[in-house]
Computed example of a mutant assay.
Amino acid sequence: MFNLMNEVLEEKSAVHTAREIYQQPEVWQELFYMLSEKRDTLKGFLDSIYAKHSQVRVIFTGAGTSAFAGDTLVPELRRQNKKNINFEAIATTDIVSNPTTYLFAESPTIMVSFARSGNSPESVAAVSLGEKLINDFYQVVITCNQNGQLAKNTQNDSRSMTVLTPEKAHDQGFAMTSSFTSMIIAAHTLFAENEFTISEAEQLIESATELRDTVTGTVDDVLKFDFNRIVYLGSGLLSQLSHEASLKMLELSGGQVAAIHESSLGFRHGPKSILNEKSVTVLFMSRDPHTRKYDLDILRELAADDSEMKVVALTEKKDQEVEDLADYTITVNNNEETLGNDFQLALLYIMFAQTLALKKSLQLGITPDNPSPDGRVNRVVQGVTIYDYE
């Protein structure tokens, strides 16, 4: 996997993380099948709620990567929505610390909890606050762990539903990788007006399979440049995805690589100050013709910089202008058909960010499966005190 021998992965404690990045096409395939088998039950649960109320809030929530799952998904759901639904992404860390800012008694609400373990204290507390403060409260738990507290709490509750991802998606490494992509695919299937068609799912899996087997060469080329800062940029939901991409590098490098994220337009408004001679900027390019104009503008601006920094551009299809401007270009879809939207692109783009973070971690002599052996950060967050809300 990723030009790394199994012996090296074992020696460097990278087996789980490498496998969990690499396995994603197979995990997605299993997930699509599982969701197809249960589609009528899952959709029926949600449709019954929509029918009861003139307006419904759907809050996607979680902490860290689980929060960024909702951030990435919501723009696409809002774009598609033609029903009486208001989609929002609010982190559990915000809900728990400021409940009445986000939870309203008279607003019927479905709280969708993204959870790898289902045991994070803020996630459990956010649900408890929803039950306490909202008159018509429903929950959907999308989790990798059927034995987690969130999943257990939905048992025998007619207002709640748990959706399990494939067991392989229950990442054992520190960083969330296949769990992240699996959970947002599951949520998209549940809530999108335009679900993946069979052909779209097959094309996505085919592109992901090809990408995982070809991206390593470019990743290794990027790693020849001794960078200690990285910026991820994108527009729309790809700007939200850049948050998750930057977190992967920050986590797996143990903080040795400073990583930030921003929108393509927002980058000029101060954050561009981070760039120096040891910076890499990664641009997630939109497939939307209008949005792409702004991505191209910042790419031209970065290419014109006379410093030694490097620019990586990810794009759906081969684009000669992009290749001429960027130091490294990654094309993620070599099929004749185009992908449907930027959400589908996001699932492919994040695989590059995961792979780059994994291999940078190894280059720095860090153990990716446990990049914080001193316990400063943990796979399931620790040290959180939850205070009773009166």
Rank of each mutant, 00 (worst) to 15 (best):
N153E: 07
K83N: 11
D288H: 06
Y138A: 02
L345P: 08
I330S: 06
N147A: 10
A245S: 08
E321H: 01
L358F: 00
L283G: 04
S239H: 08
S128P: 10
L46E: 02
N135V: 15
A304N: 11
S199L: 14
S54H: 08
I59T: 01
A201F: 04
L302T: 03
L339M: 13
I366Q: 02
M176S: 11
K82W: 09
T367K: 05
D171F: 10
V380A: 10
A186C: 09
M249W: 00
T100C: 10
R212C: 11
T385D: 15
G236K: 05
N153C: 10
N147G: 11
F180M: 14
K12E: 04
V124C: 10
T181K: 07
S263E: 07
Q382I: 08
S107I: 14
F284H: 12
I274N: 04
K83H: 09
V381D: 02
Q203F: 05
I185W: 03
L283S: 04
Q139C: 12
F267H: 10
F45Y: 11
Q29S: 13
K224Q: 14
G217D: 15
I366V: 12
A14V: 05
M183T: 01
R379G: 01
K272T: 01
K132H: 02
V282I: 11
S199R: 03
K248N: 02
N153Y: 09
E195L: 12
N119K: 06
D47L: 15
L4I: 11
R212G: 11
V112E: 00
Q146R: 07
P371L: 11
I298R: 04
E131A: 07
N145D: 07
Q320W: 05
Y387H: 10
V280L: 15
I59H: 00
D40Q: 13
E30N: 09
H16T: 00
K359R: 09
V96D: 03
E316F: 02
Y328I: 13
V222Y: 13
K310S: 13
P289E: 01
S97N: 10
I198W: 01
R268E: 04
L46C: 13
L238T: 01
T331D: 07
S117W: 08
A126R: 01
V56F: 03
N335G: 12
A169L: 07
H188T: 00
F32R: 05
G236T: 01
D94R: 02
L42I: 14
E30Q: 13
A258Y: 11
S307M: 07
G217K: 04
T218A: 15
Y50R: 15
E193S: 13
N86T: 14
I134F: 03
V377Q: 12
M351G: 03
L325E: 09
D213S: 14
S123M: 07
L265D: 06
N335E: 06
V257R: 00
L164D: 01
D47K: 12
T218N: 10
R212V: 15
Y232A: 12
I274A: 03
F114S: 08
G254E: 06
G266F: 02
V311K: 05
L250N: 03
T93S: 13
T72Y: 02
T41G: 11
A63M: 11
P368A: 05
N156D: 08
F267V: 12
S235V: 04
D220L: 15
P166Y: 09
A208H: 00
R19H: 06
I330N: 04
V8C: 05
